[in-house]
Amino acid sequence: MSATTTTAPEVRLRGAAVPTALTLLVVLACWQVAVPLLDIPVYVLPSPTAILAHADWSAIVSASGSTSVGVVLGFVAGNLLGFVLAGLIAWSAAAASVLYPIGLSLRSVPIIALAPFITLAVGRGVSATTTVAGLIVFFPTLVNVLAGFRSVEREALELMRVLNASKRDVFVRVQLPAALPLFFDALKIAAPTSVLGVMTAEWVIGGHGLGQLILTESLALNGETMWGGIVASAVIAGLAFTLVSLAERLLIPWAGDQ
């Protein structure tokens, strides 16, 4: 016997896709039937087919593009910040005593409270939405990655000592890879959170994204386009999560077998 084969990621994905699609279809069907049955006004909740037919899709696509840019930039910036801070904190006790309180206090301020300051500092638009998303995302990543760096078994560190490994070698060859599974967990949390951050910013600060679109369309009692925007935001969050999961399986296949 040699190393056995594992189920390929695509097979596992396809296996999960069938029940997921079925569930989605059932929910959509119930929704479609319930709306006329319960006599729900169209500006509150239109049926799926009505949304598909009457929503202003070109406006939704354009708003989705704007939101996506903020999501991607905020996701990258926030996770990079969280990862680097965690690395510095794990590397040096001195850095930890300075950076951890800063991170914690930055996290403690409700993001809404900072919104006016962010507008004044970086202006409106993508720079503002990116900043808000990044600030929401960085702290869970910091906490997770730090736990990852510290998850190394005592004996693994003793082994590195017997081998007279440098601090840099211990960090690069043991701690860093050991932190990757928790880093990917953090990225999966960050993917939808990043969408939330951008849309919150669009809602409070303004801009051309989905947050703004949903707000204005709801005020105009335009239920179809409002709901189109809601669906689009869910699709963006789901897509981001799926991409992170795929990247995880490709980049750290060893973690799934632990």
Binding site: A156, E158, L159, V174, W254, A255, Q258
Partner: peptide, 12 residues
Amino acid sequence: GFVFQDPVLLPW
């Protein structure tokens, strides 16, 4: 050379 109770192989 040191062999521990747990093999402590690096899983990656």
